[in-house]
């Protein structure tokens, strides 16, 4: 059990109020028609599934019912932060730029 701070409600709530929505920032290909089977399969099915920090979406399903992004460590369940999708994209891009 962990506590997540919903960035929309701006309030820490128990995990049970939320629903896990999977890896964040999987972009739908802009032109699906031009994709090869391999590219389309990658988009549909392949996952990073890292051991460590993971950018993931959660829905506040028993609260405001909005989606947001959490950066959580899958090895120990530590949470680095939670952001709205737009804020998270900026934070994610800044982190990726550093790597």
């Amino acid at each position: 059990m962990f506590v997540i701070n919903c960035p929309h409600c701006n309030e820490p709530r128990e995990e049970e109020e939320f629903h896990y929505e999977g890896e964040a920032f999987i972009a739908r290909p802009a032109e699906p028609e031009t994709q090869t089977d391999a590219e389309w399969g990658d988009y549909l099915f392949m996952k990073k599934n890292p051991k460590g920090w993971h950018w993931e979406m959660w829905g506040h399903s028993a609260g405001c019912r909005k989606l947001f992004v959490v950066k959580r460590n899958t090895a120990n369940h530590a949470i680095d932060g939670a952001w709205t999708l737009t804020e998270a994209r900026a934070a994610y891009d800044a982190e990726m730029a550093k790597i």
Partner: peptide, 13 residues
């Protein structure tokens, strides 16, 4: 448990 994890523990609920 619905979230991904490598921690070999889940949530009590």
């Amino acid at each position: 448990d619905h979230y991904t994890s490598y921690a070999q523990r889940g949530s009590p609920h």
